[in-house]
């Protein structure tokens, strides 16, 4: 699911393995969007990493091999020191089928960016399916969306050749189903413009989490986080400037 969520944004990337788990940071070709992923050791039934190692993987190749696994299969990933290949083993729960695949690794000279800790002006958590719906609907009208966070709520608005559209979400607490709540923490009003093409792309991570958190400050990249039980997938998107 994680590979599915990011494979259309980045093609080749290093899976950085160390004591804390498997991490990945990669920018898209245009340097407008960045994905940062972390799968913590606690999320694996067994995890061992003797030395820090970067596995340079072509995500399309990895995706092809992962398609050979059944949904409930146990997956084991293995790589030696200074590896040429990443080994994947799929086993069904009855232990009567074992599938073994190797994918070739590559040397990827990847630029790592330092992402400063930021006190965001607005932090909004909403159902991830709702966010996906809004992005898809507005992309039919325009290529850009304005996102405005005020004490009234968060407003997504766009204008295009056929007309305009806007969706406003107000804070609402759902006691029975907290994953359907919308919460807005506001330090200061924020108004930014973003490309919808990227936002729709990020929404491929919707299946990873029932909620998504948007963190916004004026004139800095938007942070979109899908939290998992033992890790996260974060996307950063540079704003459009100077409307």
């Amino acid at each position: 699911q994680v590979v599915d969520a990011i494979k259309d944004l980045v093609q080749d990337c290093n899976f950085d393995c160390n004591d804390s788990g498997i991490a990945l940071q990669a920018m898209d070709n245009s340097h407008v969007a960045l994905v940062a992923m972390h799968l913590k050791t606690e999320g694996f039934s067994q995890y061992r990493c003797d030395r820090n190692i970067a596995l340079g993987v072509n995500l399309a190749s990895l995706q092809k091999v992962l398609r050979a696994a059944q949904n409930e299969d146990l997956l084991t990933l293995k790589a030696e020191d200074a590896p040429d290949v990443l080994s994947l083993v799929f086993e069904n729960s009855e232990n009567d089928r074992i599938s073994e695949y190797d994918i070739k690794l590559m040397d990827i000279d990847q630029e790592h960016l330092g992402i400063p800790d930021t006190e965001y002006g607005a932090t909004v958590t909403l159902p991830s399916a709702e966010f996906q719906r809004i992005c898809r609907d507005l992309m039919l009208i325009s290529e850009s969306v304005g996102i405005e966070a005020t004490k009234e709520g968060i407003k997504f608005s766009c204008a295009g050749d056929i007309g305009s559209g806007a969706v406003t979400l107000r804070q609402n607490a759902n006691v029975d189903k907290p994953e359907l709540s919308t919460t807005i923490e506001l330090q200061e009003p924020v108004a930014l413009t973003f490309s919808l093409k990227y936002l729709v792309n990020f929404c491929k991570a919707t299946g990873l989490s029932s909620t998504v958190t948007l963190s916004l400050s004026n004139e800095v990249p938007l942070l979109i986080e899908y939290k998992m039980e033992h890790g996260f997938v974060r996307f950063y998107l540079a704003p459009k400037i100077g409307d």
Binding site: M27, S30, H31, V32, A33, L34, E111, H112, L113, G114, I115, P116, S144, T193, S195, V220, P221, Y236, A238, P239, K240, I241, G242, D243
Partner: peptide, 14 residues
Amino acid sequence: TSTQARLNDFFKPI
């Protein structure tokens, strides 16, 4: 019209 900013304008390589 607006221009699309790049992440390198905000985040520096480490």
